[in-house]
Design a binder for these strands. Structure first.
Lengths: 142, 142
DNA sequence: ACAAAAAAAGCAACAATGTTGCAAAATAAT
DNA sequence: ATTATTTTGCAACATTGTTGCTTTTTTTGT
């Protein structure tokens, strides 16, 4: 596990430091996505706020994590799959945000649908965020 | 036009004040969506920052405007169509964000697609944001 | 049109979030 | 092991968002 982290950093030409190992570890041990605030809380006592910002920024640049848009002013980040690389995110999966537990999940098996746009519009990337109740919060009603 | 604004406020049981008229006017004269910062710049010299926050908040509550999620930590707002009402937004259209001019548009005629979710997930609302080049920025290449 | 009641605006103070430059420390390269 | 490079932490600052309270504006009822 710990070797896996180091390997990922090496593969991306990143030097191996405590904060990068720690933060990448958080993502690997986490099913859902993490907001900046979550990371600060979980790792933050040991690291400066600025370091967390810079680490997330470089992870996004390197294609290790990707951002998930939200309407609540707190970008969430999640691990990319192998097909992402520096400067080229190739995520075509959708995201799911649970209105109960407020976790955000990547549904890696659900591909974004094709969308027919009006004349003149050209699509380069599609983001789909589904809100609702996740499998862990499913109400046991019926 | 000015009467239209007053009517909209009255219809939503909002008292008619300078800031509400001004901010609602901005949305009516605007094709795309507006971020909080845009509104502060365009209307802000006359109004307190707090007033802008509270005005946007109450417009969302009343179903006059809706939010559009982004991955850049700046929620955007756009006018709702008539089918929205207090506490019940019924937007099923998609949003388009131009990577060139950075405007965000509601594509009111494009309905969000159905998405098949994994077992256990229940959808209550779907957000689709398409990135690309808008009709105004379309490159005249071909 | 006026007075009383209700609602909104403005102000101040504060909290949280994000950014920048630079010196010290850690990591990588030779 | 020493040097060069990169990263960290710190401090200071800028921006964004929030809260309580007083004053002003708008609405309501007469």
């Amino acid at each position: 596990m710990h070797e896996e982290i180091k390997d990922m950093l090496k593969k991306n030409n990143l030097s191996i430091t405590g904060s990068r190992e720690k933060i990448l570890g958080l993502f690997l041990n986490q099913e859902g996505a993490l907001a900046h605030g979550d990371i600060e809380k979980k790792a933050g006592e040991k690291f400066d706020r600025v370091t967390v910002y810079r680490t997330l920024q470089i992870f996004v640049e390197k294609g290790i994590i990707h951002t998930i848009p939200t309407a609540d002013n707190s970008i969430r980040y999640a691990l990319c799959k192998d097909n992402c690389s520096e400067g080229h995110h190739h995520d075509q999966h959708i995201h799911f945000q649970c209105t109960n537990c407020h976790n955000t999940y990547c549904l890696d098996d659900i591909v974004t649908p094709d969308i027919k746009l009006p004349k003149g519009y050209v699509s380069s990337h599609i983001e789909v965020v589904v809100e609702g109740t996740c499998k862990n919060c499913k109400s046991p009603v019926a």
